Amino acid sequence: MKDGGAIAMNQTLECYIEQDCEISLLALNTSRHWVDESTLPIFYNKLKRFETVFVKTNVNPLSAFFNLFTDKSYNVERFVNKQVEQKFIELLQSENYDIIQFESIYTSPYLKTARKYSKAKCVCRVHNIEHVIWQRLSENETSIFKKGYLKLLTTRLRNYELDILKQFDLLLPISKRENEIFIQQNINHCHYLPFGVKKSDVNFPNIQTEMNSCYHIGSMDWMPNIEGVQWFLDEVWPEIYKQFPQITFYLAGKNMPLSLVSKESEHVKIIGEVEDFVSFSLEKNIMIVPLLSGAGVRIKVLEAMSIGKTILTTSIGAEGIGALSMKQIIICNTIEEFLNSFKFCIENPEESKAIGMAAKLFVEEHFQREKIYSELVVKLKALTQEL
């Protein structure tokens, strides 16, 4: 439950409960993001109904091959499951719901079922514009054959995504950029729903920051993270290490691929999954988010900003947040820009720290959790009154 998507979904559930909404949840417990139900947050006990179905979403080479001879998106087809549909029908027949919220387009194959068995308004939370992620991955791919396959996946996913999103009563994009793209596609039924943060004074007197350090943390089974970190270690880190041999880079995250584990050295530490994001981050100095592809908003960036971390990231890593470079975040897109920005932070520690503290104030002002969800509930109540 530590990757960005799961964190955002959990926040939505918790905030709906805080707003006195009555919630039933049907969750696809997938093979890639399988969760032990006994470890779920305590607020799950307040759900009216909670059902889970295990769904095997691993890429199957044979299924992927036969999919080539269809016009369907293989990305989406992996989430289609008869048991999920049956459980969904049981829920819809047991109660009259006002709102049915779908989390991402990967649950959208069940929209037809919702329309058939319920009169509820159907809402989709858009964590990313998925085809943009795959488009960027295909653009960065150097293998001709893999590039061609990624382009095919992108085209099919784009066609499906833009069509299905038009069929919902309301979209809840996680960033303003997604909102703008939808408007360009004549999809106007949107309500901006960013990830929210709680205003808090971060004060951990017993945690000492290792000043000669930088770090990256994220789900390391997500292709954009793997791609970005690989580029950073291959192209950027050697240049940083030449000038600052005292610096150590820490790489944390679940499901670390062997290609990155093999990069471990005296000054590159592969940590794997960590229990406490906040403590781990406060122990380190500069956060590195070298994304070359991806879409939506990086939840880990917002979380790090909320505790006053100084962040070096690409334009894609900062996308959808609205922070200004050298004001609340530091944006760098090339090897030289990363090197110069890193040098600035090491040689100007007080100015670097000030950018981190400005980031904290920025997210507290623009991503205030209680305000975000109170406005959402008002919007949803109004939606239920529409004919």
Score class of each variant (00 low, 15 high):
residue 243 Q to L: 13
residue 238 P to T: 06
residue 259 S to V: 09
residue 234 D to Y: 05
residue 245 P to H: 04
residue 247 I to S: 06
residue 251 L to D: 03
residue 222 W to H: 12
residue 228 G to W: 03
residue 248 T to S: 14
residue 222 W to P: 04
residue 232 F to C: 01
residue 252 A to M: 11
residue 226 I to P: 00
residue 221 D to R: 04
residue 220 M to Y: 09
residue 264 E to T: 08
residue 229 V to G: 00
residue 227 E to L: 12
residue 230 Q to R: 13
residue 239 E to C: 05
residue 226 I to G: 00
residue 255 N to P: 02
residue 233 L to T: 14
residue 235 E to S: 12
residue 255 N to C: 04
residue 236 V to D: 01
residue 240 I to S: 05
residue 270 I to W: 11
residue 240 I to E: 03
residue 222 W to V: 05
residue 224 P to L: 04
residue 234 D to K: 13
residue 238 P to K: 08
residue 240 I to C: 03
residue 260 L to M: 14
residue 239 E to R: 14
residue 223 M to T: 06
residue 218 G to D: 09
residue 267 H to S: 11
residue 248 T to I: 12
residue 239 E to K: 15
residue 263 K to T: 10
residue 252 A to W: 10
residue 226 I to A: 08
residue 267 H to L: 01
residue 245 P to I: 09
residue 233 L to F: 12
residue 266 E to H: 08
residue 242 K to D: 02
residue 270 I to C: 07
residue 240 I to F: 08
residue 255 N to S: 10
residue 266 E to G: 06
residue 240 I to W: 06
residue 226 I to N: 01
residue 269 K to I: 14
residue 221 D to N: 13
residue 229 V to L: 14
residue 265 S to F: 11
residue 247 I to R: 05
residue 253 G to E: 04
residue 260 L to Q: 07
residue 262 S to K: 15
residue 260 L to G: 03
residue 243 Q to C: 01
residue 223 M to H: 05
residue 219 S to G: 13
residue 262 S to G: 00
residue 264 E to A: 15
residue 220 M to S: 07
residue 234 D to A: 08
residue 224 P to S: 10
residue 234 D to T: 14
residue 235 E to K: 14
residue 233 L to K: 13
residue 243 Q to R: 15
residue 265 S to I: 08
residue 244 F to Q: 07
residue 256 M to L: 15
residue 237 W to Q: 02
residue 267 H to G: 01
residue 225 N to L: 11
residue 265 S to C: 11
residue 262 S to M: 03
residue 236 V to P: 01
residue 257 P to R: 10
residue 265 S to T: 10
residue 264 E to P: 04
residue 231 W to I: 04
residue 229 V to P: 00
residue 257 P to I: 11
residue 231 W to M: 09
residue 249 F to M: 15
residue 234 D to P: 00
residue 255 N to V: 04
residue 267 H to T: 07
residue 249 F to N: 02
residue 240 I to P: 06
residue 243 Q to I: 03
residue 246 Q to Y: 10
residue 267 H to I: 00
residue 229 V to M: 15
residue 260 L to T: 05
residue 241 Y to F: 15
residue 219 S to N: 12
residue 268 V to M: 07
residue 260 L to H: 13
residue 221 D to E: 13
residue 241 Y to T: 01
residue 223 M to D: 02
residue 246 Q to S: 09
residue 240 I to R: 01
residue 267 H to A: 02
residue 230 Q to K: 15
residue 264 E to N: 13
residue 223 M to L: 12
residue 258 L to S: 13
residue 227 E to V: 03
residue 218 G to C: 05
residue 238 P to F: 13
residue 233 L to P: 03
residue 230 Q to T: 15
residue 250 Y to R: 11
